[in-house]
Design a binder for these strands. Structure first.
Lengths: 149, 149
DNA sequence: GACAACAAGTTGCATGATGCAACTACTCGA
DNA sequence: TCGAGTAGTTGCATCATGCAACTTGTTGTC
């Protein structure tokens, strides 16, 4: 029986999951952020099944998250688009949660820093528009115009 | 054949995905943030298969993300723990990406506001420690002490 | 032109995940 | 005792995942 799609849900989270929720997708995107571009390199770094990698890359290209560019010799490279780059907060939020709750005994596995200053970035958090960090109990959800349909 | 686990990967993103990457998990957590607590309510709101809901709730309880509390009449409620609340940046980052790239023609489906002021929260973004918003090209990953193993 | 290596898939199949509908067991109120 | 509500459990069908082998195209060397 078919997987139940989330596509019908009028929910931005569900819409996002429909695109990036398949197994391996976020790990492929992680590697794309690290600079991986070639099919074979993704396959080796991740130790992923070739048919699954093909399917995921095609889906990401179809969704405009990666661009598939031909290079010499009938080869291709897969490069993040702006739409793909905008997933960075998602990846970093998950990474920071994993750092805190699934830590390595020796410390952080990766430190993300600002190129210009070398200083670590701030932990991913929810902010007020004036920059203050907000806690979950400080936040509430209100229906927007897009909720009525 | 067995799914390939991500648990062996020395990567915080992979560790997080191993916990919350299964189908429906983030949607269950979304509803928990909205105040859903009871099995039957999750089941109806999400239209999820009962066996899958059971399995996901049990996993979330095992991971300490939800707490299962008995209430009167042999019933239970499932409540977010601090560990679960700390997933809010993940959910909001995905929601904001969905708002931008999978928009509803009528506008945002939900608006998240600060309780005290009623003002919308800032879009989820990566920040420097001084509060400046950083772009992906401003950020780089460096190996941390936990990467050697 | 033949061959080998590399790259990027594709194919057929086995196994586990998902989802359905029906079912079970417990609690409570009438 | 019965019915409704709650929280699962069960058996099964279908699809997702993953494996290993395979195909096709390109390039460089001989």
């Amino acid at each position: 029986m078919k997987l139940k799609s989330f596509d019908h849900m009028n929910c931005s989270l569900a819409q996002t999951l429909d695109v990036i929720g398949e197994r391996w997708t976020l790990l492929i995107l992680r590697d794309a952020f690290f600079g991986t571009k070639r099919f074979e390199q993704f396959q080796k770094n991740l130790d992923i099944a070739r048919n699954i990698l093909t399917a995921r890359l095609n889906r990401l290209v179809d969704e405009g998250i990666l661009a598939k560019r031909p290079i010499d010799g009938g080869r291709f490279e897969y490069v993040l688009t702006d739409k793909g780059l905008d997933l960075q907060p998602v990846l970093l939020a998950m990474t920071h949660w994993g750092d805190k709750y699934k830590p390595n005994a020796k410390g952080k596995r990766l430190v993300f820093v600002e190129r210009a200053t070398g200083k670590p970035i701030a932990p991913m958090a929810v902010h007020a528009t004036d920059g203050r960090v907000l806690k979950p109990r400080d936040i509430k959800a209100k229906p927007g115009p897009g909720l009525r349909s």
